[in-house]
Amino acid sequence: MKRWQWIAISLLTVASLVVEFNIEHGDHWWSSIPAFYILFGFAGCTAIIFFSKTLGKLFLQREEDYYDVE
């Protein structure tokens, strides 16, 4: 990732926060939590990666010839 790409991403985030604090929110329980979707995206992605990888390691992943071995 180049420096300008990080700057672009930061600007987008700031812009989204400016919008968030200046518009009406929905009526869900999470609507009043500030920067909820930032937390949701970050925590959600992390959780998916760790949950999947753990599940794979414990139960699901096998060698490629798993079904060929009788």
Binding site: A15, S16, E20, I23, H25, Y37, F42, C45
Partner: peptide, 21 residues
Amino acid sequence: AYHLMETVQILVFTFVAFWML
């Protein structure tokens, strides 16, 4: 505006989490 804000925040921070991991 709300929907665009929500989408941008989710997507950007999904990317950030991916980048770190």
